[in-house]
Design a protein around this nucleic acid. Structure first.
Lengths: 144, 144
DNA sequence: TCTATTTCGGACAATTTTGTCCTTTATTGT
DNA sequence: ACAATAAAGGACAAAATTGTCCGAAATAGA
């Protein structure tokens, strides 16, 4: 479904958002520890999120990553996924055709339309605020 | 979503099923030409399908691949996907956790359950016969 | 200013996926 | 038996993804 990079990206963003809601900035090491990901690789993913203005980074002592408290509700999952994996998972053809559509449908086109739209809907309506609340309420988890 | 190998596998299986419904056996070269895939790589994918008893192969002159006319309605898309990519796309966690469930849900678990079930439902109910009919009726296509 | 901390960024390495080439094996027709 | 055809299978190559390492740049505090 999602690439490893994207999985880490989503987990990291959710964790950063959760801590940011509580007014706390988190470091790369904290993040990697919390989401159980390779530190250096996670750093690369975080760079992508930073360049895409999804998270803000601060260098130096007591630096780290954060997400503006008031912006978490405006950052949708689709933005994170698009920044790392592109939007083909929720916009593209199931069989990889570039120009699959109602007029030139692939064998799965009609069967897949509903699923893709539902996935798209989910990604485009779910915000980091939603997800971070669940984490802070202890009803969802970033580790197994 | 699906790997390239799986995309080729689905396309190839649909094409073989379509031709088999018309009593025709098809060669590797015909298949690769029809679905626009690299010949040698497609051969590997077809081997996987053959080993999994999804298609039958016949060597020698006038040989090729076929799918028993009466079995096409019993072969579900899920079987093909599972043979090539495994079942994690329609059974696994969106964030890659091995033990994500109602008791230990990842941040996306509840939002993803519906989508995954719908995908699973689609893959487990769609047969090669269904898909091959559309091809033979000229309402869906294997090439762009 | 100096040091410690932390992200940034480039280069590199390992692994997986994708793709190629060539030999072997089976089968058919002559 | 022989030649031609087509899949099977092994070895290898290229590309993409995942992951590591290390020095540079920025920043805060002493």
């Amino acid at each position: 479904m999602f690439s490893k990079a994207c999985e880490y990206g989503i987990k990291a963003a959710v964790f950063i958002a959760a801590r940011s809601q509580e007014g706390k900035r988190v470091s790369l090491n904290e993040i990697a520890g919390e989401i159980n990901s390779p530190v250096a690789f996670t750093a690369k993913v975080l760079q992508q999120l930073t360049r895409n203005n999804i998270v803000d980074s601060v260098r130096g002592p007591a630096g780290g990553f954060e997400i503006n408290k008031n912006k978490a509700d405006k950052i949708r999952l689709s933005k994170i996924v698009a920044a790392i994996d592109g939007d083909s998972i929720y916009k593209g053809c199931a069989l990889g055709f570039q120009n699959c559509n109602e007029n030139l449908p692939c064998p799965l086109h009609h069967k897949f339309v509903l699923i893709r739209n539902e996935l798209r809907q989910m990604l485009e309506t779910t915000s980091l605020l939603d997800l971070s609340k669940d984490i802070n309420d202890g009803v969802t988890f970033l580790k197994s």
